[in-house]
């Protein structure tokens, strides 16, 4: 897998070059430059409204950027539908509000895309789903509907659903901020296990403990620009930028 993705030679699986984006008049992403290596876990933090979600959503084209270049696994994001679909197949996404399909059972939630997009036979798709449910710790919930699960269980199903497509990259947009404190841990545990298994992850989160423990690098954003990128130790112990210091002093 790694041979193939490195075939473009750069060694980075996500590359953003001078990315700019506007919502109408509002300049929401300003000259974003950042790269993510394969198997790396990068945590994006920053105050509310700083553009973290927008950035991560640009990477699988849920939002469209207007300037600059985004390369995912060597493929450039453009209006070419084929490229978009190729990139979406390689990236899994987990949302703050889970976004499970309420009319489908857990099993159907996990198998739908496998069968329709990956064209996997039903039996294989269901085997895969059972394995993943085992992995996220809720094997017994396969035949329930999302509405019958707790928030933490729903988010773990959402992770399993994304993993079922065997993506190279997992994008997380504040996966725990809609959860009660008791449920946050179960989701973070799954994410930690995922990170340890070598998945490339780009995680927007306010869980500083998670960032400290798991992240290889931390990106700090403020009002649409990247303020600082660094290792967790550097970032939390000895931040360089004034804005970072202010932010950390407010949340810690």
């Amino acid at each position: 897998m790694s041979e193939q993705s490195n075939s473009n030679g750069s060694g980075y699986i996500i590359e953003c070059q001078d990315v700019n984006k506007w919502f109408g008049e509002f300049h929401v992403l300003k000259d974003i430059n950042m790269k993510v290596k394969e198997r790396e876990v990068v945590v994006v933090i920053g105050p509310s409204g700083s553009g973290k979600s927008t950035l991560i959503r640009c990477i699988n084209r849920l939002e469209e950027h207007q300037e600059g270049k985004i390369l995912v696994d060597g493929i450039e994001l453009s209006n070419d539908l084929k490229n978009i679909n190729a990139i979406r197949r390689e990236t899994g996404m987990v949302f703050q509000s889970f976004n499970l399909f309420p009319h489908l059972t857990v099993m159907q939630n996990i198998t739908l895309a496998q069968r329709y997009v990956r064209r996997r036979p039903r039996r294989d798709a269901e085997d895969m789903a059972r394995q993943l449910l085992q992995r996220v710790g809720i094997p017994e919930q396969a035949n329930k509907y999302p509405g019958q699960l707790s928030g933490g269980q729903q988010q773990r199903v959402a992770i399993a659903r994304a993993l079922a497509m065997q993506p190279k990259i997992m994008l997380f947009d504040e996966p725990t901020s809609a959860l009660d404190p008791e449920m946050i841990k179960e989701v973070l545990d799954v994410m930690k296990e995922l990170a340890r298994s070598g998945m490339t992850m780009l995680v927007v989160t306010h869980e500083m403990g998670f960032a400290r423990e798991v992240a290889d690098r931390v990106i700090f954003m403020d009002s649409g620009r990247i303020v600082e990128i660094g290792t967790p130790e550097h970032f939390f112990e000895n931040p360089s930028h004034e804005r970072t210091k202010l932010f950390l002093s407010q949340i810690l």
């Binding site: 699988n60 849920l62 679909n85 979406r88 197949r89 990236t91 899994g92 996404m93 949302f95 509000s97 976004n99 499970l100 399909f101 739908l112 895309a113 329709y116 997009v117 959402a158 659903r161 994304a162 497509m165």
Partner: peptide, 19 residues
Amino acid sequence: GQIEASQALGLNPFATNAF
């Protein structure tokens, strides 16, 4: 969010509508 989740899974517009 439903449509975004579906798109993020790689389902095309037709499948997103149908399923």
